[in-house]
Amino acid sequence: MSKTLAAQTVSRRQFVITVAAGSAAAAALSLAAPSAVFATEDAKTLDEAIKHVVGDKELMDGASVITLELPQIAENGNTVPLGISIDSPMTEADHVTSVHLFAAGNPRPDVASFNFSPSNGYAEAATRMRLAKTQDIIAIAEMSDGKAYMTRAEVKVTIGGCGG
């Protein structure tokens, strides 16, 4: 009740002005928000991160080589389980040397790099990562013959894991 009384004491003209200004600000925010989102999703940052680890190497489609084990929906972005396995015999002559992981929509796309050796037996590893929001996870596997494969998978995140 007291709320409606307070509203009545504000003149009609003032009320209209305040509401208009408020909605204009809200509109400006909603316009600004997507561009801010795009800034973090900037392909350049992801490209830079990828370039930093693999240089100008040609990246072949790795959908049949790399398996990413990820939840389709992650309820908590603070700990998202992630498993990778790569189809490789892991011998001295033919093995995976390293796997680089990126989260395209995180403020910093770098996640981790795993360095394998032939004595691993299987080219498999698992960890847990933070995801700020729904986004693509990118994995790049570098082989001992110099080839590099890339694949990606999407994870839907309910609660982001980068807040504070």
Partner: peptide, 11 residues
């Protein structure tokens, strides 16, 4: 035999 370089995105 195994190593990892980590970034802040690791939990």
């Amino acid at each position: 035999v195994f190593s990892a370089d980590l970034h802040p995105a690791i939990s």
